[in-house]
Design a binder for these strands. Structure first.
Lengths: 217, 217
DNA sequence: GAATGTGAATGCGTTCACAGCG
DNA sequence: CGCTGTGAACGCATTCACATTC
């Protein structure tokens, strides 16, 4: 009996995964000065079909105008809000190796609602140096930095052996979203979301399709 | 009537996506000196359930022994073969910016059946310099390099505006597998496989789950 | 006895097709 | 009249449950 009668909380995971893609397409449409787009146009840009687009949006509410289409500006505003990037999310990068530094310098984050507010590393020779206006801090101070910078999302680019331990500390410090580049499965409580990025695994999937008798998707 | 009566070509995409994960788990089991594992153990390591594991493997053949489990060494050999990484795949990294150089230096590739055989960049000041034994070549020579190095997989870490054009050239040069880090949809023929890696998009998905009323998966 | 391999059942995501609305 | 929004149909993926095999 503890049902919340509130707004539809039921957005299927597959739909959520497509929202960033839609947002990208809409921003592209905006750049092309298209005030309104219909589901066929969005589908073309996104590489899906129109029914999918309409169904996906319908999980979030009713944003379109029948007979017309979707107002680009207001749909962008809605998606931005639902994705939680209406204000920038505060991100910490943990592990300033080559990958960590690549991500820290990636301009695409700011443009898409993410701001890298902290960078941590275990290597004391890196600690204290400053990159793009952010000072690298020690991983020993993780809890303090997470709190001070009000970090919401952590990006883990640390060695595989260290990942779970650091994840535990992040979670204890209140972080509820982790992107993990280490090729290990993180065990986390139910209220924490993890996304796994396994570069070598991705290439292995491509490799599978190169074998005879495996037509591309 | 052009059906090939050959071996089961029907491995569902979702299963393919899990194969690299299983392989990782099995190598971990091997490191722990476990000669045999059963589906429950694999499921625990991989974070799925035992029925899933058995069904997935059944698409590839019958590798287990009833009443016993799966021989770790031979299952590793089988997965490695099916993933096409029994011999290393030859990979080219196109775009030697921060991300490209991070990937080029990533040791995890070699360990998992990928060898970076070429690095290309458009910046003439980088061309000719050598990193980890690979000389950076000019993107003008793309076709020549792809052929000479017998590249099978291309990793695109170029600016969004350049991605489609370079993809076209890669495809014309015979590349059938592309991993694209640029936040644009690549249009490719049916026989070419693309995997899209959109870092900012991944963080936006995490961000969605931070909103009230979005329990972690 | 124990664990695989697999049909059958279930659940979920996609697509269809059309009613509803501007 | 055109395009959205959506119930219904479909198809694929996951899970169940058990016959099969070692």
């Amino acid at each position: 009996m503890s049902e919340r009668p509130s707004k539809q909380v039921k957005v299927p995971p597959t739909t959520v995964q497509r929202l960033p893609l839609y947002l990208r397409c809409l921003i592209q449409a905006q750049a092309r000065r298209m005030p309104v787009v219909n589901s066929v146009q969005i589908a073309d840009m996104a590489g899906t079909n129109a029914a999918q687009v309409r169904k996906d949006f319908s999980y979030l509410g009713e944003f379109g105008t029948r007979g017309v289409g979707y107002d680009v500006d207001s749909l962008i505003a809605n998606l931005t809000k639902r994705l939680g990037v209406a204000e920038h999310r505060r991100v910490a990068i943990i592990g300033f190796g080559r990958l960590g530094s690549a991500l820290q310098g990636y301009a695409g984050f700011e443009e898409r609602g993410m701001s890298v507010a902290a960078v941590l590393d275990a290597d004391s020779s890196k600690v204290g140096t400053s990159v793009d206006g952010v000072v690298i801090e020690s991983i020993d101070d993780l809890e303090e930095v997470i709190e001070r910078e009000r970090i919401e999302i952590a990006v883990l680019t640390v060695p595989a052996g260290a990942a779970q331990g650091i994840a535990n500390r992040l979670i204890a410090a209140g972080v509820k979203a982790i992107m993990n580049f280490a090729p290990v499965r993180l065990v986390v409580p139910d209220d924490v979301t993890v996304r796994q990025a396994d570069m070598a695994g991705e290439l292995q999937i491509l490799s599978f399709h190169l074998n005879p008798g495996s037509p591309a998707e």
